[in-house]
C-alpha cells in the first residue's frame, strides 16, 4: 500500500497546496484534498494534515470555527484511532481548539505579525514526526503568524515537558510563547501541532530543506512503502 494522506482545506486556508506538494514530493504517496464541509475522510489514511492559513477569517478566535466544522469530527475520530495528524500554524490553532492538543495560541506578545525564518531546537527526536532529526539539533524553519503565542498553565507545561511532548522549541524568543514552545505532541504521540512551516522548507529553492526530515520521519515511522 502506498502512503496515503489527506490535506484538509477550510475556507481561508492558504498553505493547503504547499502542504499537499510537500507530502507528495517527499513520500511519493497519494494526497487527497478534503473540503471542510465533508463529513467523511477517505478510507485507509496514514496521515492527515491541517494546513496554515486564516480559516474563517480568524473569526471569534484563530481556529475556533474550523475546529467545529463537520470534517473535524472525522479528524478527531481518526486521531483517536492512532492515525498521524499534523497541524501547522492555523492547523495547530485548530488542533488546540478541537481539544486534540492542550493549551491555546494567543496574539503574539509583540502584537506584530511575525514572518521570517527562525532557528528551532529539536527537543524530542523519539517521536513519529521527529525521529529523522537528532536530539538538540538546530534547524531553520519559517514562521508566519499573528497568533503563535503558546499558552498553557504551568501544571500543563510541566507535564508536557516531563512527558517529552515538547517537540520543538524556538532557539530565540519569537512570539512570547511559554517556555519558547514551538510544537507539541499529544499524549499518544500521533498528533503534532507546530507554528513553524516545515512544508515551506523542503528544497534548496526555499532557502533550505530542514523541513523534509519531518515528513521522512512519518514515512519511515509508519513503515508504509513510499
Amino acid at each position: 500500500m502506498a502512503f496515503t494522506a489527506a490535506v484538509i482545506t477550510f475556507p481561508g486556508s492558504n498553505c493547503d497546496r504547499d502542504m499537499a506538494v510537500a507530502i507528495e514530493r517527499i513520500t511519493g504517496g497519494t494526497v487527497h484534498r478534503v473540503w471542510h464541509g465533508d463529513a467523511e475522510l477517505p478510507s485507509g489514511l496514514d496521515f492527515i494534515a491541517l494546513p496554515g492559513g486564516f480559516s474563517y477569517g480568524d473569526y471569534l478566535r484563530s481556529g475556533a470555527m474550523a475546529a467545529r466544522s463537520p470534517i473535524m469530527q472525522a479528524v478527531v475520530a481518526e486521531a483517536g484511532r492512532g492515525t498521524a495528524v499534523l497541524g501547522v500554524c492555523n492547523g495547530f490553532q485548530v488542533l488546540t481548539e478541537a481539544g486534540l492538543l492542550p493549551g491555546a495560541l494567543m496574539r503574539n506578545a509583540g502584537i506584530r505579525f511575525v514572518c521570517r525564518d527562525v532557528p528551532l531546537v529539536v527537543e524530542n527526536n523519539q517521536s513519529l514526526f521527529t525521529a529523522r532529526y537528532s536530539a538538540g539539533q538546530r534547524i531553520t524553519i519559517p514562521v508566519a503568524h499573528h497568533d503563535g503565542n503558546y499558552f498553557a498553565d504551568s501544571e500543563t507545561l510541566d507535564r508536557l515537558e516531563g512527558e517529552g511532548r515538547v517537540a520543538f522549541r524556538y532557539a530565540d524568543a519569537v512570539n512570547g510563547s511559554q517556555r519558547d514552545i514551538a510544537g507539541v505532541l499529544n499524549a499518544a504521540g500521533n498528533v503534532l501541532g507546530m507554528m513553524p512551516h516545515p512544508e515551506r522548507m523542503i528544497e534548496p529553492a526555499h532557502g533550505g530543506s530542514d523541513g523534509r526530515a519531518l515528513f521522512e520521519s512519518v514515512l519511515a515511522g509508519l513503515g508504509v512503502a513510499a
Partner: peptide, 8 residues
C-alpha cells in the same frame, strides 16, 4: 463549546 476558550 464555542464562545469562550476556557484554557485562557
Amino acid at each position: 463549546k464555542l464562545l469562550a476558550n476556557q484554557v485562557i
